[in-house]
Write a protein that binds this DNA or RNA. Structure first.
Lengths: 221, 221
DNA sequence: GTCTATATCGCGATAGAC
DNA sequence: GTCTATCGCGATATAGAC
């Protein structure tokens, strides 16, 4: 995804080619998630999908484009789960509490796929290089995430008693940074970090917790 | 630095070897900062330092150990600037405001070396892999940073009026995560993010700003 | 359109001459 | 302490068989 939306029609593909492509994407997702990007070769992915590495390169121009298609597929799934507004502009918007619940749910879900979290962590760092093949993809990804989190924070602020001040865009940036940074700490020490607790605690201390949610216990450091 | 402190005496080296070593470390720091770890070869570094890659490997057993020495040198410098207690146990501890000022100063200083910040961002993500050569280095690094930030937060909490509740270790973890995550966003869009403002704002909204500091303007999103 | 086989490149690392 | 020569490896690109 070098360009924000896909305005062009993808080239027509045969049903067999389509299935092979999907098989390759599945294999790539699994292997990338397990071992990261650099540690996995095209030969590994091709073997896992049941063909040779040159056969794979018939379907994807190179390792980079394969990576970006893997990421795009995953992001589209996640975005629909938390922010239905992205893909279905007319759909009914859930309330702030429900959206917060979904966001935390996404964090919890991430905790079950450390391989993919690690892949995103590595790539979002690598892709800060303007020459990286996924640079534009990640710039766009962060822009969209920031926008959606800003809307969420706005809704939480409006629903908070007493009303919370502050620029929602600033809080959204901080929230996004917090989630990213916690992933690194969690990957380093999976048993010492409960990401969703630390995210919830952060919002709580800003007065943006669930409208009537009474958080019982403490938070593990 | 595979082990926490260095309890062993380094092998004696000739003055010439020492100079060559330093030249190699300088070159490695510059090239790693510019292009990252994987994108730079030992041949690149050796050429920049004025020898061949085999000559370089006489001074460092491998690319990994070279990397870790580059990181260690930088970290030692930074730690002394902000947390004099680490290297000089008996030295007088500065007050909470002064330590906060130094921490923010470190963030500002980082803003002037995007290459090194990018290197750390890439490596701390890569090194989450338990098999990565710098894995233990980064686990130890985060442990120390967390401890020092916990002490800082404790001091800020004690100095705050009214006193701020909460587990300092939790806040320290969140602060560390925030700083890490902001680096990624800043590297992606250098002109759109002022890291020190967002860090200061975060502490401010937790009631942990400088004791008498009146923040004038707003914060850019 | 789909895939295999082959060739080339640059990498980290080692051995041994000087 | 530094070099040349060389190894095995993985990523990538191309030619052409089916």
């Amino acid at each position: 995804m070098s360009e924000p939306p896909e305005s062009e029609t993808p080239p027509p593909r045969s049903p067999k080619g389509e299935r092979t492509r999907a098989r390759i994407l599945d294999s790539a997702t699994e292997l990338f998630s397990r071992s990261g990007f650099h540690a996995v070769s095209l030969r590994d992915i091709a073997a896992h999908a049941g063909l040779t590495h040159a056969g794979l390169l018939h379907h994807f121009p190179g390792k980079d484009s394969l990576l970006i298609e893997v990421l795009g597929r995953r992001d589209r799934t996640d975005a629909q789960a938390v922010f239905p507004g992205i893909t279905h502009p007319g759909a009914p918007e859930p309330g702030p509490d429900e959206r917060l619940r979904r966001l935390v749910g996404l964090v919890v879900r991430n905790s079950r796929t450390p391989g993919l979290v690690a892949l995103y962590a590595k790539l979002s760092a690598e892709a800060t290089d303007p020459g990286h093949p996924a640079h534009h993809y990640f710039r766009e990804r962060y822009r969209v995430l920031r926008e959606e989190l800003t809307v969420l924070v706005e809704a939480l602020q409006a629903a908070s008693r007493p009303p919370v001040q502050g620029d929602p865009a600033v809080t959204a940036r901080q929230l996004l940074a917090l989630m990213d940074g916690l992933q690194t700490q969690w990957l380093l020490e999976p048993d010492a970090v409960v990401m969703e607790d630390l995210v919830t605690d952060f919002l709580h201390r800003l007065g943006l917790g669930p409208a009537a949610g009474a958080e019982g216990g403490g938070v593990s450091p």
